[in-house]
Structures are given as C-alpha cells and as structure tokens.
C-alpha cells in the first residue's frame, strides 16, 4: 500500500484531469521582470547588451523557480534537473520574449520597459538574432498562440531538452508524457475543430531550438569579447552550453 500510495501521489499525470496541469502551469508562470536600463550609461551597444544580460540573469532565477512547479520535475535527481535546465534555459527565455512580443509590430518585447525594433537591434549587433526571433513571433501570431499553449509548450521545451547524460531517462520520459498529454488534452477540449493543432505547435519547437542555439552562440562570443558585464548565473549557463 505505501508504495502504491507514493506512486499515485508522485505520478505527474495522476493530476492530468480537466487540464489541471495547464491550470497549474498558468499559476506557476513567473511574475513580470523589468529591464530598468541604467540611465547613467551612454546609449550604445554595450548598454543594450548589458541591459539584456542583466534582464536574462534575473529571468533565469525566476525560470529555475518555475521549473520546480512542473509536475514531476522536483522528483528528478538534482543532476537531472540541472541537465534539463542547462540545455533548455535559452529556449525558455526566448519563448517568454516571443510570447510577450505577439502583440507588438515587428518589435521584440524583452520587457515592458525594453522593446527593441530592428534598428535598435542592429545597433546592438543583434539584427540576425532579432530577425530569427521575429520569425517565431510571426509563426505563433499566425496560429493565435494562447497563454495556455505557451505555458505548456515551455514545459515541453524543458522536458524535451535532449540533454546528454540523463541518469533516469524513464523519469524524464514521464515528465515529457505528462506535459505532452496536457497539451493534447487542452487542444482536444479547446480546439476540437483543428485536430492537428497540438502537432503544429510541437512542430515549432525545432525553430525555437535553432534560434536558442544561435542566441547562446552569440552571447558566448560577446562573453569572450569581455566588454559586457555578465552576472554569474548567466555566465554559468552560457558555459554549460
């Protein structure tokens, strides 16, 4: 009995009734973060990149707290939790930027107080990345991505981060199954008219991963350049890639 009891309590999908996982993920969504660019710095590329790296560092702290709310994540071993986050952290950051930018016209809403158009991105040396992220924004905008789908996709990106050296692949698979099932349940209930919608959403994930890899590569070269101050967590995760 105790074994069964424990299994029922820790089986993530035991709560996947009436989209409870989706509701839970909505509730776990981190609060807004403001960029607060330093008014004392001259308006140049260094200021833009410093602002973005500082914002990313603070968002990362929140995203780590968020990950712990994913049903089943905290039952993974600490090394496995670390490996998933080390692989998916940039995808999670980017998906949040993309979702915030859905209502903006060809601009990236890094934060409510930090919106970047192509001209500003070019000045910061981020034009290529800006264009790549906007491709994702347009894709999700044309699909009418909903908040429920966004939070679930973000959980799928973490669970599906394809990290090497996972200790307990079965536990990670359970996490993947749970969030995948949550998305399918949600689409069945809310988008019955389009039976392929869950698949269409999942098919956006390769572009997210590709864009995140570009972003990591770009910020790694900025790090090597050494002109932009970066906080320790951001550096630690850049080094993990």
């Amino acid at each position: 009995f105790p074994l069964n009891h424990k299994k029922a309590r820790t089986d993530p999908c035991s709560i996947n009734v009436e989209n409870k996982v989706v509701s839970h993920l909505l509730g776990a969504e981190p609060e807004k973060v403001f960029a607060m660019p330093d008014p004392a710095l001259p308006d140049d590329d260094i200021k833009a990149l410093t602002t973005l790296c500082d914002l990313a560092d603070r968002e990362l702290v929140l995203n780590i707290g968020w990950a712990k709310h994913l049903p089943g994540f905290s039952s993974l071993s600490l090394p496995d939790q670390m490996r998933l986050l080390q692989s998916a952290w940039m995808e999670i950051l980017l998906l949040r930027v993309v979702f915030r930018s859905l209502d903006a016209e060809d601009k990236l809403v890094f934060a409510e107080d930090y919106v970047m158009d192509a001209g500003q991105a070019k000045l910061a040396g981020l034009l290529e990345l800006h264009t790549a992220i906007l491709q994702l924004v347009r894709k999700y905008r044309s699909m009418g991505l909903e908040r429920e789908e966004f939070v679930t996709l973000k959980a799928i990106a973490l669970a599906n981060s394809d990290s090497m050296h996972i200790e307990d692949m079965e536990a990670v698979q359970r996490l993947q199954d749970c969030v995948h099932e949550a998305l399918q349940d949600y689409e069945r209930t809310h988008h019955g008219e389009d039976p392929r919608r869950a698949g269409k959403l999942i098919m956006t994930l390769p572009l997210l991963r590709q864009t995140a890899a570009k972003a990591v590569q770009h910020f790694c070269s900025i790090k090597q350049d050494g002109r932009v101050p970066m906080h320790k967590l951001f550096l630690e995760l850049l080094e993990a890639n």
């Binding site: 709560i15 702290v61 712990k68 709310h69 670390m82």
Partner: peptide, 20 residues
Amino acid sequence: KEKHKILHRLLQNSTSPVDL
C-alpha cells in the same frame, strides 16, 4: 558540479514545489 554551483544552489533553495 562546482562549475555550476549557482544553478545547483537555486534548485535546492528556490521556491518549494506545490505538493501535487
């Protein structure tokens, strides 16, 4: 592990998960 000490510490210390 030493290399990733902040991530390690945050995972151990950040907000406890809701008991599901």
